[in-house]
């Protein structure tokens, strides 16, 4: 957690990042940036999904609808925060010439998405019968 807070401070202090290590080949930095953007798109899609659940499943019970929408929105927030954090860690690792950081976030997100998808199927089936 303390590590995360320290990283958050770094997001707004580019000159500190540039002080350590050497600048890597610009192509590596651009590839890192594209990965960051891909995660950001995933986050935006999750947020869009939250809106969509609220708008396009009006027959659902209020509790289920809001619960699913909030779960998707929370996943979107987590995903975007993690995107910038991981981008920063990769950038620093490249500057220092270290291995890129590993992460269990992709696996975690996959499991959460699978659970939400199954919940959606159940809810839609039950909702339509009821």
């Amino acid at each position: 957690m303390i590590e995360f807070v320290r990283n958050v401070r770094l997001w707004f202090a580019p000159e500190v990042v540039r002080q350590e290590g050497t600048t890597p080949d610009y192509r590596f930095s651009l590839a890192n940036e594209r990965t960051f953007l891909a995660w950001l798109r995933t986050a935006l899609a999750l947020i869009g999904g939250g809106f969509a659940v609220d708008q396009f499943l009006p027959d659902l019970g209020r509790g289920w609808r809001i619960g699913l929408a909030l779960a998707l929105l929370a996943a979107g927030v987590l995903c975007s925060l993690r995107a910038v954090n991981h981008w920063m860690r990769c950038e620093r690792a490249m500057r220092r010439g270290e291995d890129l950081p590993v992460s269990r976030f992709p696996a975690l997100l996959s499991v959460v998405i699978a659970v939400v998808a199954v919940a959606m199927v159940v809810v839609v089936l039950v909702g339509w019968e009821g």
């Binding site: 770094l10 997001w11 707004f12 202090a13 580019p14 990042v17 600048t23 610009y26 930095s29 651009l30 890192n32 940036e33 960051f36 950001l40 986050a43 935006l44 947020i47 939250g50 809106f51 929408a69 909030l70 929105l73 929370a74 979107g76 927030v77 975007s80 925060l81 995107a83 910038v84 981008w87 920063m88 950038e91």
Partner: peptide, 23 residues
């Protein structure tokens, strides 16, 4: 030049605030 951390944080901030509005 590599993406500035401030820009990355700004883009993420917009995304997070959009989610907050959504909630």
């Amino acid at each position: 030049a590599a993406l500035a951390p401030r820009q990355a944080a700004g883009a993420v901030l917009c995304t997070v605030l959009l989610a907050v509005c959504a909630a």
